[in-house]
Design a protein around this nucleic acid. Sequence first.
DNA 1: CTGAAAGCGCTTACAG
DNA 2: CTGAAAGCGCTTACAG
Lengths: 356, 356
Amino acid sequence: MTQIKAPAAKEPSVSSAVSTINDVARLAGVSIKTVSRVMNDEPNVREETRTKVKEAAARLHYRPNLLARSLAGSRSFLIGLLYDNPSSSYVIDLQQGVIERCRQSGYHVLSEPQDSLAPDIGRAIASLLATIRLDGVILTPPLCDMAVVLDAVEAAGVPYVRVSPSLFPGRSALVEMDDTQAAYEMTQFLLGQGHRDIGFVRGHPEHGSSHRRYDGFIKAMHEAGAEPHSRRIAQGFNSFASGLEAAKALFMDAGNLPTAIFASNDEMAFGVMAYAQQTGVRVPDQVSVVGFDDTPGSMIIWPHLTTIRQPVTDLAYAAADMLLSRASADEDAPNFSDTRRELPFELVMRESAKAV
Amino acid sequence: MTQIKAPAAKEPSVSSAVSTINDVARLAGVSIKTVSRVMNDEPNVREETRTKVKEAAARLHYRPNLLARSLAGSRSFLIGLLYDNPSSSYVIDLQQGVIERCRQSGYHVLSEPQDSLAPDIGRAIASLLATIRLDGVILTPPLCDMAVVLDAVEAAGVPYVRVSPSLFPGRSALVEMDDTQAAYEMTQFLLGQGHRDIGFVRGHPEHGSSHRRYDGFIKAMHEAGAEPHSRRIAQGFNSFASGLEAAKALFMDAGNLPTAIFASNDEMAFGVMAYAQQTGVRVPDQVSVVGFDDTPGSMIIWPHLTTIRQPVTDLAYAAADMLLSRASADEDAPNFSDTRRELPFELVMRESAKAV
DNA sequence: CTGAAAGCGCTTACAG
DNA sequence: CTGAAAGCGCTTACAG
């Protein structure tokens, strides 16, 4: 690859473009310690001095060097987002929310995708945390349910928050939504629409949320005295293809279709809808279809998908807030690891489901 | 928000968990300068000494502190990804590719979403670059076409690469694909399938790629002597809703439908397909529909969408490689800003288009 | 081939 | 209310 000169800089000398705390101190006629005090909004500075320093800083376009602050101080102003998630919209929404909150506090976010299947993931994370002193880490599924990952983060002494963990309750601060209740309410919604014969597509058996969603479904069906026959339950793996396969099984007997299908996630619901369309089953006229997650796809298929909206952005806000308030609190503020926030989901009614 | 004690660390003292260059030097019985040489794979170290240092580093689980390296040296090992893009899959794919490449070189990536509509975006970026000394910046549309953004990056003296810019050719290193040619080939594909009466949904007029795609379409149609009537051209704005509206216009006369519709992006193609479905127009039997971008949605609708795959990951690789090779090269290697790489697109044939 | 010194730009701990 | 000194963990520039 060819490479040559950097784009012409506006300043004669690149290095002269950035001013340091020394420049500000000199211009304001104070010590660098005083400049530091002003920049960090510390008390015990005469108002007149404060003004003088602020003016000097403004004139020089001074911005404290984050790296230098990190090295000298006890904070790095860096939060790590560790993920290994196949859903781009989930990751991007979460990341966006975390960045938004961090920015307000002068923090930056390091996105660090991880391969949860890698045998040395524990060492990889330990190495990462040794290389960059992070002030906090956010862990998403499936990483947040892996003991080796939690061990590594804890060994490094970095505070962390888990998003929607399924395992090790109480081991750390966490944010989550109630999958079971959401599936329960979605099922109740279907029942309320007059559906009694409802098929269910289970999610990937290794995801904790799959089981919670199934439980919520069964609970509602049970309460309604409408326990599904086992042939109304299909096993999926969270993919479009597995949804298609599940639909094939659930629609086996064309003369005896369920009136609704509840897929454990949107992706599988799309598979069900595609299969229905291919075989001439009309949605929602013959069969209602609902999903779970409210991915972007639910608004681009027709009929638009009725689904459960995960509060991804709010989960991100909450996780970031926990970390940030811990970072600015006393080193040993008590009970951080007991912090737990449950955020509300939302049942989004669209066109893929209707009353029977 | 409550916050309390950090998760119990494995080590008695958190600070003792991380070893420094001094620890390694002491254990190996050498100076820190020698440790530095070994860690950076510099020459002029006796093999025996090198081994001794490596062993000491391994025993102490030593990882050089990135922040300290940054402050002392001329490199920060940090690359910034600046974006303001509504498509989560585009952003995540690009980010993933950039991170992957950076990781191999010991670099980390700071994702910095920007509001391209903010009036002070130039100052925001200048401030960011003053706060964190980045070794390089990657700019995506629409940021890469904003003079105020380029000015800020250049003023900071940070090397940068633009991804798919439409404006200011030659102002910087860039990676891109040929939108015009892609649209041209997609149109030729349709023509080759026997379509002559092809409708077109134009993209958002403020996106440079919209015009290039339109040009490619027109060129192919012209060459085939099949110039479209103006009522076969609809204006969209890259959204699902605008695709739906466009379809309404293009399908106005039910007795005289085009045999194919080429939408400038997938999102609008989905809108066209939804409208077709709502009005009983069968895709692809009555009308073929094709899109552009190969977003995840193209695989969850039925029929799956025939579209153009942007080489997003490869664009990311190429952009990162340019920056990384520049970072490890001489400060003034010539012509970096002339570097330009064009990557091949791919025509992905799926079920939404068929021969007439 | 190896090392002692200085310094990157800040904050900490202390003194006044 | 303010500042001089030391130090964070490295690399640079220089000396031998």
